[in-house]
Simulated assay, not measured.
Amino acid sequence: MSMRIGYGFDSHAFKTGVPLIIGGLPIEHPEGLAGHSDGDVLLHAITDALLGAVSAGDIGTFFPPSDPRWKGAASSVFLQTALEEVATAGYKIVNIDTVLVMAKPKIVPIANELRESVSRLLGVKPGEVGIKAKTPEGLNQDHVAVAHATVLLESLEVPEPVSLRTLEAEADEDRDIEMNVVVRGLVGDSRDVSALGRKIPAFDTDDLT
């Protein structure tokens, strides 16, 4: 079994007139996040972490902002592509940890909802997703949302081909048969002990008085 670690980062400025979506979850807020797609900063960071873990490039490799097809697209589409790349590489998610850095809205009150939304999109348990929040104190980023994501992957167990398992089972069965023959030859009622270096008595001991 092999392990892979991936790290992702993304940032978006707040913008009026667009909905705020984080982790695939619509959030009530006067401003949303500017971006070519829906601006979901958290899913973008997770997508990059997944792609990076399997050396598949980054989100811009698959969905360049210059492509009009992705204008306003849901970031869950990007995430699904990253999950496919992970599966193709022969890995699965062990757990994922994230940090959101923003002044508003407050993330702590909705952290559980975010965790459930992200875990559902990833196809993992909520307990395998970490959602943390920090304020950008001293960073002069009060009007920006930043996301960091780290993911741990492990290789999938590939089942042995049926034909190989069958051959091994047959070989084991043959060995068992051979062993039974040897055992019967050693402990059977009519064994020849001369080959073992033992001497057979020349007379019947029952005749001794």
Results as ranks from 00 to 15, higher is better:
residue 24 G to P: 06
residue 5 I to Q: 05
residue 35 G to P: 08
residue 95 N to W: 05
residue 178 E to V: 09
residue 17 G to E: 12
residue 158 V to L: 03
residue 69 R to C: 00
residue 208 L to D: 11
residue 58 D to A: 03
residue 188 G to I: 08
residue 118 V to P: 00
residue 2 S to C: 00
residue 156 L to A: 03
residue 93 I to G: 04
residue 49 A to Y: 13
residue 61 T to M: 01
residue 142 D to H: 04
residue 125 K to G: 10
residue 200 I to W: 10
residue 149 A to Y: 03
residue 200 I to C: 06
residue 38 D to T: 10
residue 149 A to E: 04
residue 139 L to Q: 11
residue 16 T to P: 00
residue 16 T to N: 02
residue 78 F to M: 11
residue 164 L to Q: 11
residue 161 P to Y: 06
residue 21 I to T: 05
residue 176 D to S: 08
residue 60 G to Q: 08
residue 177 I to N: 08
residue 108 V to R: 02
residue 123 G to F: 03
residue 34 A to D: 14
residue 176 D to K: 12
residue 131 I to E: 01
residue 84 E to K: 14
residue 195 A to V: 07
residue 191 R to N: 09
residue 161 P to Q: 03
residue 111 A to I: 06
residue 101 V to R: 03
residue 43 L to N: 11
residue 173 E to D: 12
residue 159 P to E: 10
residue 50 L to E: 05
residue 180 N to K: 04
residue 181 V to S: 07
residue 170 E to Y: 06
residue 164 L to R: 05
residue 39 G to D: 13
residue 71 K to L: 15
residue 56 A to I: 04
residue 142 D to V: 02
residue 34 A to T: 03
residue 156 L to T: 12
residue 77 V to G: 01
residue 84 E to L: 12
residue 186 L to D: 08
residue 208 L to C: 07
residue 174 D to V: 13
residue 106 K to M: 09
residue 145 A to H: 00
residue 179 M to R: 14
residue 64 P to C: 07
residue 129 V to G: 08
residue 38 D to V: 10
residue 5 I to S: 02
residue 158 V to G: 03
residue 177 I to S: 04
residue 148 H to W: 03
residue 36 H to I: 12
residue 30 P to C: 02
residue 76 S to T: 14
residue 104 K to N: 11
residue 70 W to T: 00
residue 199 K to N: 12
residue 188 G to N: 08
residue 36 H to Y: 15
residue 24 G to R: 03
residue 96 I to M: 14
residue 94 V to G: 03
residue 21 I to M: 04
residue 127 G to T: 09
residue 163 S to A: 07
residue 27 I to Q: 05
residue 1 M to E: 02
residue 142 D to Y: 11
residue 171 A to G: 07
residue 120 R to E: 08
residue 6 G to W: 02
residue 178 E to F: 06
residue 87 A to S: 15
residue 32 G to T: 11
residue 174 D to N: 11
